[in-house]
């Protein structure tokens, strides 16, 4: 199998698997009235999931060896601060990402 065809196969597999996963909750809950607990979970889960997603994004950092995840943690804190202060995501994201890119090239 040529490299290019193989890559198309991988893309196809990733696509189908992702679509199946995304469709699962709709297949399970889609055709009946939502139970109270599911309705409650739909409202509350985002609050929990977002935090888990941030931890997921930071999973690669090492807290036991230099620089102890310092650039990531500094920039996450910076981003949270900017968002609290400005309440506007675009400058928060742009500034924090730029600072991160500078930090990993210069200080750390």
């Amino acid at each position: 199998m040529s490299d290019s065809i193989y890559a198309f196969c991988v893309i196809g597999i990733c696509s189908v698997v992702t679509i199946i996963i995304r469709a699962l909750p709709f297949l399970v809950f889609g055709n009946k009235k939502l139970p109270d607990t599911v309705d409650y979970l739909g409202k509350m889960l985002p609050g929990a999931i977002m935090i888990v997603l941030v931890v997921y994004c930071l999973r690669g950092i090492s807290l036991t060896s230099a620089p102890y995840g310092a650039p990531e943690l500094i920039c996450v804190a910076l981003c949270a601060f900017l968002q609290l202060a400005l309440k506007n995501s675009i400058p928060s994201i742009a500034i924090s990402t730029a600072v991160y890119m500078i930090l990993i090239r210069t200080v750390f």
């Binding site: 935090i51 941030v54 981003c79 928060s92 994201i93 924090s96």
Partner: peptide
């Protein structure tokens, strides 16, 4: 790609301000 992390952080902050209870967080 750190921009993606920052986006989630921003949304966490927004939710923190909007949710009456922080138990889910």
């Amino acid at each position: 790609d750190f921009a993606a992390t920052c986006l989630f952080v921003c949304i966490c902050v927004n939710q923190w301000m909007e949710f009456k209870s922080h138990i889910p967080m």
